[in-house]
Simulated scan of single mutants.
Amino acid sequence: MKSLAVQRWPGPTPTPQDGIFAILIDTSGAPSPPGAASTPAPRGANAFPTPASGTGPQRDDARRQIRLAAREALAVVLRMPATDITVASAPGTPPHILLAGVKSRIGISLSHDDGYALAAINLHGPIGADIMRVQDIPDWQAVARDYLGPAIAAALQNTTNRPLAFTQAWTQREAALKCHAQQLSEWQAELTGSTISLILPAANLAGHIHIGDKTA
C-alpha cells in the first residue's frame, strides 16, 4: 500500500486496507478562546522545533471531537458499541485502544491542523499520523537540514513545488516519530517501518501515516 484514501466523518462505514483506515473531521466550528484570531496561525520555521500541538479551549475541543469520531468509526468497523471503546495514552508510548477496558493491539494516531483533525487506526499495531497545511515555510533550508536530514534538504533545492514537497517530507517524518513514540529532535537517522501517503478530502492539506516493520 503506497497511499490511503482518507474518509470524511461522519460518513459510510470505513473499509480498512490491510487493517488500516483514517478519517478526517472539520473542527473549524470548534469554539475559539476569547481574543483568538479567526484563522489558524501558520506553522512557520519557529514553530517546527515545537510542533503546533497548541493549548486552550479550541484545541481541547478539537481533541475531544476527533477522539469521539474515532471511537464512533471504529465501533462501526468492529460492530460494537462506541461506549466500549476507549482511546488510551501514556507518556512515552503511542496511543492505543481499549476494548471494554482491556488493552488491544489496535493502534491509533491523531493529528490536527488548519481546522481539520485526523484519526488513523491500525487494527494490527502501532501507527503514526501527521497532517499539515501546505505553505511556504520561511527559512525552510535550515529547518530541512536540522530536522529532515541532508538527503531531503538537498532534494528540496531542486523541486518544482517546494511548499508541497516540504510539507510531504515534514509529515512523513512526524508520522514516523509518532509511530515510534519519539519526540521531535534534530536529524539522526531514518526510522524503521513503512510510510504511506494520505489522499485527503480537503484542499491544501498533505499528510502521511507510518506503521511498524510490516511491509506496506
Rank of each mutant, 00 (worst) to 15 (best):
V87G: 02
P14R: 02
Q182K: 14
I23L: 01
Q135V: 09
D139Q: 07
A62M: 07
P34N: 08
D146T: 11
L74A: 04
I20F: 02
G193I: 00
I131C: 02
R173T: 04
I127E: 01
S89G: 09
R64I: 13
A176D: 10
I152H: 10
L68P: 04
R71M: 01
V87K: 03
Q182S: 05
S53A: 13
T27N: 03
R79D: 15
R133I: 06
E174Y: 00
P33I: 03
R162S: 05
Q135I: 13
A165S: 15
L68H: 15
R173K: 12
D84L: 01
Q7M: 12
W187V: 01
P34A: 08
I152L: 11
A202Q: 12
I209D: 00
L164R: 14
N158I: 14
R43D: 15
R162L: 14
D26K: 05
A142T: 14
A88V: 03
A75R: 00
R59Q: 09
G54V: 09
Q7S: 11
D61W: 12
I121C: 01
A90C: 08
A73F: 01
S194F: 06
P51F: 06
T160E: 15
E174A: 00
H180K: 00
A129N: 06
A129H: 03
K178G: 00
S38I: 14
N161P: 12
S109D: 03
G207M: 00
R173S: 03
T55M: 13
A62C: 11
G29C: 10
R43C: 15
A73N: 04
A189F: 07
L110Q: 03
G125F: 02
A153G: 07
A90T: 10
R145I: 12
S3W: 08
V6W: 04
A169H: 08
A119N: 06
Q188N: 10
A120R: 02
T159M: 13
R79H: 11
G125N: 07
Q168Y: 07
A5G: 07
E186D: 13
L118A: 02
S28A: 15
A22Y: 03
V87M: 07
P57D: 15
G54R: 05
L110Y: 03
Q188I: 07
G44F: 06
Y147M: 04
V143F: 03
R133T: 08
A45G: 09
G207Q: 02
M132E: 15
S89E: 10
S53C: 12
I20W: 01
P201M: 02
A202W: 04
L118Y: 02
C179W: 04
Q7T: 05
F21C: 03
I121E: 00
A203Y: 08
W140T: 13
G19W: 00
M132R: 12
E72Q: 13
N122G: 05
G149K: 05
L123K: 01
K178R: 08
A216K: 06
A151E: 13
F166L: 11
D130I: 04
A142L: 14
L177W: 03
Q135G: 13
Q157G: 07
D61R: 12
L164K: 14
L148I: 05
L200R: 05
T195K: 10
